[in-house]
Amino acid sequence: MAKVSIERLKKQFGGSVAVSDFSLDIADGELVAFLGPSGCGKTTTLRMIAGFIEPTAGTIRIGDVDVTPLPVHKRNTGMVFQRYALFPHMTVAENVSFGLEMHKVPAAERDARIRTVLDMVRMTQLRDRYPRQLSGGQQQRVAIARALAIQPKVFLLDEPLSNLDAKLRVEVREEIRALQQRLGLTTIFVTHDQEEALAIADRMAIMHDGKVQQVGAPQTLYEQPANLFVADFLGKMNFFRGAPDGAAFVTERGTRIAAQSGAGGARHLGVRPERVRLAAQPGDGNALPGTVESAVYLGSLLEVRVQLDSGETVSSQVANGAPRGQAPIGTGSRVYACFEPADCVLFAE
């Protein structure tokens, strides 16, 4: 395995810029998730690292080697494709063997390595099956084994779980994470599913419109989003437009909210719904009076929308842990939406 450094990478298709000024250093053995809505340039970036797309500008280093001018087959990256891309005319073992043959691994050693990787993904029993005889999850595991068999310098995954059903997705992603940590694989994982990224990434790079918005540990990105896009994209957030006034923030509708840091040019204030408590009486911190507009039952959570007296609305997520028999929060009830100044995040634009 090796570290990867990407420097000022840029890709332009005709007049439209798909990726611009992308710089990122990925440590040896680190799992970085590229996260963003479709069309944000995350897959383009991954494909530039694999060599399928030639960058307009910038360099990609794998280990100490500048791979930017190298063709795909000389880069030694192991890629798992969204639709698996198994060779339909080869058995599971033959699929895995293909890369080893290309890397001129002698036949004797080849067999041992096929066995090792198939054991790793628990597919040894099915080594003589053809891809069409396998389920989606099994095909995905073969694709992973095939990519890892060549002992790549970087492990690249392009939306590897998007074709699996919800339950399997969680299972396979945990397997990928376990494997990645056990083997110390430098891994880039492209996804549009934030839960997936939050769950397995060491660091995440959130992309939008071809630009990296913020890079950091999942917790940092969620708790301290650098800008409005990151805050809005990752999880849910209540936003207020307005301007700072001393230590507080005054919204356009005149609501005064106490915030911890009175950043100078702040134009927006955000607070996560799970940080908003609903109470009958105002307590410490911010307490905004309002009326419950709707309460949506989400199983483990109750999502309550409160229409504030100022006319703004605030969402609150309440854990569904209330004692049985207690009356649920009904629409129309009067409540205070309470949250701590420390839970408020300010954004310039």
Binding site: A50, H73, M79, F81, L86, A147
Partner: peptide, 9 residues
């Protein structure tokens, strides 16, 4: 692409 990625010209 998978074949190229695995080292095939």
């Amino acid at each position: 692409e998978a074949a190229q990625n695995l080292g095939a010209g």
